[in-house]
Nucleic acid binder design. Structure first.
Lengths: 253, 253
DNA sequence: ACGATACACGCAGAAACGTGCAAGACCAGG
DNA sequence: CCTGGTCTTGCACGTTTCTGCGTGTATCGT
């Protein structure tokens, strides 16, 4: 049995039965209680369960099913997403970019959070259809298949008609000198248009993006309020970006 | 065994069993674990699987049950969808409504068919992202959650900027006197706007819709070119509709 | 307060990992 | 048919990660 699989199993148990007894699970799976405890400790550290004496409980009854769903997204992205989701104020409006990290943010939005999500990603829209309180606004246009988002003139134009408190932007490269970059010019323009419609722009960058640059510039650092990353806060690039006046939000790297 | 073949095998395993254990696969195929790991690394780099210690997991649980979900598409809808998909001419543009039947149409589009699909449904867009040759155009707007499509003024306005050869419309009720109906006024207006932008409008109606009517009128029969249904061609309503000059396309009921 | 249970920590063996390297397969051009 | 180049594959190596056990500590129920 794979370690990751075991973690999923634990989250599954949590949603189905509402609790986990370390001893029982260890006996069921034929592994040591230590392993179960270790897993539970990790999950608790990520906010996916609440550790109690003898086992674990769901962190809150409402979040159980989304926790299970997001269990498969890579660790780094999930951590970044959790921090980003916490930035969305109740009743506020957030512009959410496309990409897997942004998708993780969508999944990390608390089920009891009433907010408006504006996005050009059909994938993210689909993921939030089930969200009980989120109001969704989809920016249409020609779909750029590589990243599964709406791009082009029509999409940029649609973006001009919205405003938000916050823009959460995913990028391909995060580099001190090059700024934020991505691999497609249309996409870069779209991201720029989105960022321009929000009071604050925060960048989602799991650690593998740090220190890399792609062909097309999205934004200079002056336009960015903060960087959310699970990379080491002492990383050269992170330090440099901080020196440029960008708030660094560490996601427990 | 060819490398590409091996990759397919891995992806197959992933969807069938939901996980891959590198060691087991290596033993099964009689190759080294290194090769398996290399393949998994490549697949992960392409976003086709998620690498975990000991093997790999599907990128998202949704991928696993995708096949299962598709299998549960009721027979009727699938037949209707197949007939509808065959109406899309190579190189042509089709406006695709939202709803489960339309989703089935999207899935039924041949992979080698180059066409433009215009839709206000993020779900359908997401389903067609993988389609190798389909050009996608998404109509944005406020998302009406009940049916997961963009509705409202912005969406209708966006629809004014497109034209297509064909509009495939899903409805809730198909009735000889009441015409085509659905349960929400905004949605009805949106469907009307879509139908107005296409040269021909065909209605997708699996048999359970025939003879029923909902609260809001979408279109009168005069605006409809054809009705695609798996219902009995001798059904009273079908006969009546045919008498109104609407082409009936039987989907092998 | 006390025994029982659960816990965290450290350790060591085992398993899985990435990388560099060399042998072989494959392909294209002469 | 040969030759040079590229790509793939398996192996060896050092490294990282996981797992189970022992130990001592904290927490629970009585």
């Amino acid at each position: 049995m794979l370690a990751a699989e075991r973690r999923d199993h634990l989250l599954g148990l949590l949603t189905r039965e509402g609790k986990i007894v370390a001893k029982d699970v260890a006996a069921d799976l034929g592994i040591s209680e230590d392993s179960v405890r270790r897993d539970l400790r990790d999950l608790a550290a990520e906010g996916l369960c609440q550790r109690v004496y003898g086992g674990a409980l769901p962190v809150s009854p409402a979040v159980v099913d989304y926790a299970a769903r997001q269990a498969v997204t890579p660790d780094g992205k999930r951590k970044v997403a959790a921090v980003a989701a916490a930035l969305v104020p109740p009743g506020g409006a957030v512009i959410l970019d496309g990409g897997t990290t942004a998708l993780a943010v969508a999944r990390a939005l608390p089920r009891d959070l009433a907010c408006t999500v504006i996005t050009h990603s059909p994938t993210i829209t689909a993921a939030l259809i089930d969200h009980p309180k989120a109001e969704l606004y989809l920016l249409g246009g020609r779909i750029f298949k590589h990243s599964a988002v709406a791009c082009g003139a029509a999409a940029v134009e649609a973006a001009q008609n919205v405003s938000a408190d916050l823009c959460l932007l995913g990028v391909t490269g995060v580099h001190a000198e090059a700024g934020l970059t991505t691999g497609d010019a249309e996409e870069a323009a779209m991201k720029r248009a989105l960022a321009a419609r929000a009071a604050d722009t925060y960048v989602l960058a799991s650690s593998e993006k740090i220190g890399t640059a792609s062909r097309f510039r999205v934004l200079p650092w002056s336009e960015v309020s903060g960087l959310i990353t699970d990379a080491d806060p002492d990383h050269e690039t992170v330090e440099a970006v901080r020196a440029l006046g960008v708030e660094i939000m560490a996601a427990g790297g």
